[in-house]
Amino acid sequence: MTAYLPALLGGMLIGLAAALLLVLNGRVAGISGIVGRLAEGSNVAVNAAFVAGLLLGPVLYRGLAGGWPAVTITAPLPLIAAAGLLVGFGTRMGSGCTSGHGVVGLARLSPRSFAAVASFLVAGVLAVALLRSSGL
C-alpha cells in the first residue's frame, strides 16, 4: 500500500490544483484545452502562466525531494513524434485529455467524459499491447 502513497498524494495535489483553478479563475484545468487556447493566442497571459507553473512543478519537486522525478523513456524519437501528433490531434478532436475529461469530467459525472475516458483507456491498452508485441 505504501508503494502507492506517492501516487495517491500526487493525485490529490492534481485534484486540489484543478479544484482551485475552478474556484479562483472559473476555469477547467484541461491541459490540452489550455495549450490549444495558448496556440490560438486566446487569453495568452493566463494560459501561459498556468503552463509556466506546470514546468515549475518538477523544479519544486526537486527542491522538496532532493532529486528529479524518475523518467524512463525507451521509445525512439520518431515514435515520440508520432505519439505527440496523435495526442495533439486527438485531444483537439475529442475536446480533452486525461485532465479535462479524466479528472474534472469524471468528478462532474459528465457522460461525455466517461465515454472519452473509456475510449482513450481502451486505445492506450491496445497501443501498449502493440508495442509489446513488436518488442518495444
Partner: peptide, 23 residues
C-alpha cells in the same frame, strides 16, 4: 468525441505521455 479520444489514447500508449506530464 470517441474517435478523437481513441486517437489520443493511441498516442498516449505509444509515447507514454499525455499533455500535462509532457509539458
Amino acid at each position: 468525441l470517441i474517435l478523437g479520444s481513441a486517437l489520443f489514447g493511441l498516442g498516449w500508449g505509444l509515447g507514454g505521455f499525455c499533455p500535462g506530464p509532457a509539458l
